[in-house]
Design a protein around this nucleic acid. Structure first.
Lengths: 181, 181
DNA sequence: CCAATATATATCGAACCCGATATATAATCG
DNA sequence: CGATTATATATCGGGTTCGATATATATTGG
């Protein structure tokens, strides 16, 4: 998730670690903050893999910077990760939102639509959070207002996303009408 | 998150690991599956801490079982975790949903309401996912339909939950009318 | 009767994440 | 001029998670 965000942000422009940190924090920090001890090793991994290039520059505001550039291999890797996301990237909200934030970098509308279709399939799968033996339990069965709320919110949430998915897929799959990148 | 779920499920009844695995999978498995290599060490941690007691029993269907019982200390720990959740438990959807699933075990409506108020405060905080320098960017500014969708979905989602929070808080905080546990 | 499947528990190594800590520099404020 | 804050990068140890693997038993199906 973090690696995808780093590759995605660098796809737009070269950044140094501190700047990247701010952007990553804005994207998902209010939900799940990323510690420095997570970010810098992640950058190192991507650099070791040849996906990111580090170049030292004098500091503009303060200490010297290490500018990060996405290499052609890094761009290919970003596209691979966007084109063939793991199941967890589809199902986990945090990961899915991160993916969505950079999906425009997957050039082909067909490929973008294929990814959205995977999320659609996941959201359309019937799921129950609680069971009485084998029998799935409905919201109304809980005297507990919290479990009721849990199911109510989950339902409302997926309805909102389903509506968006349907209209966006229709637009993406209309031939001739290529949405702006 | 996993530990909270284990304590919470055991609060209702003693379970063996395999049964627990099924319940944990139903609760959050469709979003984030839990591997055996995560579950069993987690059970061991809770047992080592004295929160869970393991008792061997002959297998009913197959191999022998290790039944898990919540100790009084375990129950106190569950309540502590429900009463004073970490910030991450409030902000991260997966963790928050898990907390919500067991919040009824925090007996006092006042305490339950206090936890809901923390989530309310979090959802009411203005957040932007993307910035142009220091300026937060609105949904309409993105030519990219995916980032637009991201913001649209996030907004709809939090509206649904806010509505639920307001009505539930009103009910919890109406004196005399104690909601069913 | 044998194989496959479902039930049931557990460990190991590799990878990963976090919090704490350390270092260095420029700007700002009193 | 000194302290604090903001900018900027990095490591280390402890703990957690995961995927793979191992073991054992009862049932079901062919």
């Amino acid at each position: 998730m973090l690696e995808l965000a780093i590759l995605g942000f660098l796809r737009d422009q070269p950044l140094h670690g501190y700047d990247l940190r701010t952007r990553v924090a804005a994207l998902m920090g209010h939900v799940r903050p990323i510690a420095d001890g997570t970010l810098y090793p992640a950058i190192k991994r991507l650099a070791d893999a040849g996906w990111v290039l580090r170049k030292d520059e004098p500091g503009v505001a303060a200490a010297p910077r290490r500018m990060l550039y996405l290499t052609p291999e890094g761009q290919a890797e970003l596209e691979r990760r966007l084109r063939e996301p793991a199941d967890l990237d589809i199902s986990d909200e945090n990961r899915w939102f991160t993916l969505l934030a950079f999906l425009r970098h997957l050039g082909e509308p067909k490929e973008q639509a294929a990814v959205l279709r995977r999320r659609l399939a996941f959201l359309e799968e019937p799921t129950s959070f609680f069971y009485d033996g084998d029998r799935p339990m409905a919201a109304e069965e809980f005297p507990d207002p919290f479990r009721q709320g849990l199911l109510t919110i989950a339902h409302a949430t997926s309805q909102a996303e389903l509506a968006w998915l349907h209209t966006t897929l229709a637009a993406l799959e209309t031939p001739g009408e290529t949405p702006p990148s």
